[in-house]
Simulated assay, not measured.
Amino acid sequence: MAAPDRDTNTDPDRDAAPDPDPDRDSVPPATPAQDDAAPVTRWHRHTGGAVLLDGFHALKHAVRFGAEVEVAVTADRAAALALADELAPDVREALAALLAEVPYATYASLVPRPHPTAVAALAVRPSRAGNLAGLARTPRTAPVVVLDQPRNLGNAGAVIRLAAGFGATGVVTTGTLDPWHPTVVRGGAGLHFATAVERLSVDELPAGPVFALDPEGEDIRALELPDDALLAFGSERSGLSPELRARADHLVALPMRPQVSSYNLATSVAMTLYHWSATGGAPA
């Protein structure tokens, strides 16, 4: 796995970097205007079942973790490659080969909401069979994060980003939320390709002891979370479902000041994964 770039704590919605050194001659020229139709044609050909990579950071991470990118466009190719020089030199050459420049209006017409970096791409979704095999493989060296009937797309994306950063085996959602929804992928900054992400029923969860977060559970500070654990988190509104609670082997509580109702879902996942990593586990 490649070393992380220097924007580890950078919001994926940050603006593009300034223009590169004018003496630099390695930025290929922008795609000629008469060729604009070619990437747009490819885009429409693949848009049906592909994963939308919305923004430079989503594309960067997808490429870094082996995604098969069908087409990538930008309204400012020089700025995108300058950003690669600054933050992702390990994938700069690959991005240079992928990115085609199109007019801003054309770029904006291809995405639900233009990203500040004016970069977008379509990638092949990893196979469900491959993800399920990865989730089921034992012995596991890192937990699986289970989001039980989550509701907020942005929170789900943030959790996937966290899980990838900690080297979790994968993220599983139950319920109706699609973990590959474009808003979730945007929130995850393309790190869906760095871990296994799938939607399953409670009955389909991979094997392993389930440690479910619940205010009435045992204080997490008294526990050591095993590498093969399933770390389960209830929905933002209603907590654990009856099905997941029945499947749980342990109920676990995070330390919290009295009269504070709850933590944000992503915050709860971050605290739990950090506890796992600090008591024996470690990122891959």
Score class of each variant (00 low, 15 high):
F211Y: 15
R77I: 10
R64T: 13
P255N: 07
V102E: 02
A17V: 12
G190I: 05
A156W: 00
L110I: 05
T195V: 15
E68A: 14
H61A: 07
A194H: 06
V119K: 01
P255F: 12
R45Q: 15
P242Y: 12
A108V: 04
P89N: 05
S262M: 13
D15I: 06
G167F: 08
S268A: 15
T174E: 07
T267S: 03
P112S: 06
P126F: 00
A108G: 11
T176Q: 13
R6H: 06
R6I: 14
T10V: 14
V51M: 05
T173L: 14
S127R: 13
S241E: 14
A16T: 07
A253R: 14
V260A: 10
L191I: 03
H115V: 05
A248E: 11
R6D: 14
G281W: 01
P103N: 09
Y107E: 01
R14S: 01
A118R: 11
A37N: 04
G239C: 03
H46W: 12
V71M: 11
D228S: 14
G217S: 02
V63P: 00
V172Q: 00
L153Q: 05
V73A: 09
E216H: 13
E243Q: 09
R64L: 12
T195F: 03
A196M: 03
H57S: 12
P126T: 05
L135Y: 02
E68I: 10
S241A: 08
W43Q: 10
P32T: 07
T183A: 14
M271C: 06
